[in-house]
């Protein structure tokens, strides 16, 4: 076996990034093996087969009934020892990176995070993202088993039917690993979130104060969207960090991002760049956000935003 994909799921709900990892794995070897952790993931075998998994190795253990970085990482490490793959791919997500780091530490192997391309040779040459995607690093990877996570959005998920034969892998987990299994969950309230909103109205330093976000809230509310902000805004205490769009905040992907008074520094751009369309409203026509946007209005957001709201109300009568 050459390539093994660690399936990311939450109590049996598949993370879409897994399908991207399967697509990436098929570029390394057409025969792809998948690894699912916990019996809740057994139901995923069919979908994994549709996306190219020739064999789905299933691990069942009481400690895998919910997510736990140590139990998952140790299970991956034991599966790697048992199955001896040449490479292991996981998702370049919070969980994927955490689990593969755990496995790498336990196997004493290198681990390359957030890879966008792999050149398989005697010494692997791998390209990975740095700075949240604004810079690429070419690196060599020397290891008996290559551990990689696949950068989100670097590969497109696609169907490629394979057998999806199921097999069982036995793991022996130290009960102490229960210490990092999720102890309690608070489900998110239903509704539009920053990460999933179809429209985001973002405000930057130029908004000027917490109160001055009211017109942005009003516009977002009218259009069924939400308000986001830049890191400068959260650092000033004007808005909560949960509203921050950026490398260390939320990555958004709305149909339209209206970036108001945001210069577009790397930190922010990385979080906004997956937006389908961007409209920048800025006094500076040379601002990075303006030059990278699809559409722009040159002007003071404090005048432009209320004018847009008024125009919407006028048309709606």
């Amino acid at each position: 076996m050459t390539v093994l994909v660690v399936v990311e799921h939450d109590r049996g709900t598949l993370s879409p990034a897994t399908l991207e990892a399967l697509a990436a794995a098929r570029t390394i070897d057409p025969v792809v093996h998948a690894l699912t952790l916990g019996s809740a993931a057994d139901i995923l075998a069919g979908e994994l087969a549709a996306h190219g998994a020739a064999v789905v190795h299933q691990v069942h253990h009481d400690l895998l009934s919910d997510f736990g970085p140590e139990a998952w990482g140790e299970s991956v490490a034991q599966a790697v020892r048992a199955l001896q793959p040449d490479s292991v791919l996981a998702c370049g997500t919070d969980r994927g990176n955490e689990v593969l780091a755990q496995a790498a530490a336990r196997l004493d192997l290198p681990f390359v995070a957030n890879v966008i391309s792999v050149d398989v040779a005697d010494v692997w040459r791998v390209t990975r993202v740095r700075w949240g995607g604004s810079l690429l690093e070419a690196c060599t990877l020397t290891a008996p088993t290559k551990l990689l996570t696949v950068s989100h959005h670097a590969f497109e998920a696609s169907e490629s039917p394979a057998a999806g034969t199921t097999a069982s892998v036995t793991v022996d987990l130290d009960p102490v690993l229960a210490r990092t299994v999720v102890a309690e969950r608070v489900e998110r309230e239903a509704g539009v979130t920053l990460a999933t909103a179809p429209l985001v109205v973002g405000g930057g330093r130029a908004v000027g104060s917490a109160e001055a976000f009211a017109p942005l809230e009003e516009l977002a509310g009218l259009l069924g969207g939400v308000v986001g902000c830049s890191r400068a805004v959260t650092n000033n205490g004007w808005r909560n960090h949960t509203d921050q769009v950026g490398q260390t905040g939320t990555r958004i992907a709305p149909d339209l991002y209206m970036a108001c008074g945001i210069s577009g520094a790397i930190q922010h751009w990385v979080g906004a760049m997956a937006s389908k369309k961007i409209l920048a409203i800025n006094t500076d026509p040379e601002a990075n956000m303006v030059t990278k946007a699809d559409y722009a209005v040159i002007g003071d957001l404090h005048k432009v935003v209320p004018a847009i709201t008024a125009e919407i109300r006028r048309r709606r009568g």
């Binding site: 810079l135 690429l136 690093e137 690196c139 060599t140 020397t142 990278k292 559409y295 209005v297 040159i298």
Partner: peptide, 28 residues
């Protein structure tokens, strides 16, 4: 370790022909 950087590469700059919708509130 087993991962060694060879070089850094600029990622492809998103090239965008920004469509100007106008200036100030008149652009609403």
């Amino acid at each position: 370790g087993g991962q060694q950087m060879v070089s850094l590469v600029q990622s492809a700059e998103q090239v965008s022909q920004t469509i100007m919708l106008g200036n100030g509130p008149e652009a609403a």
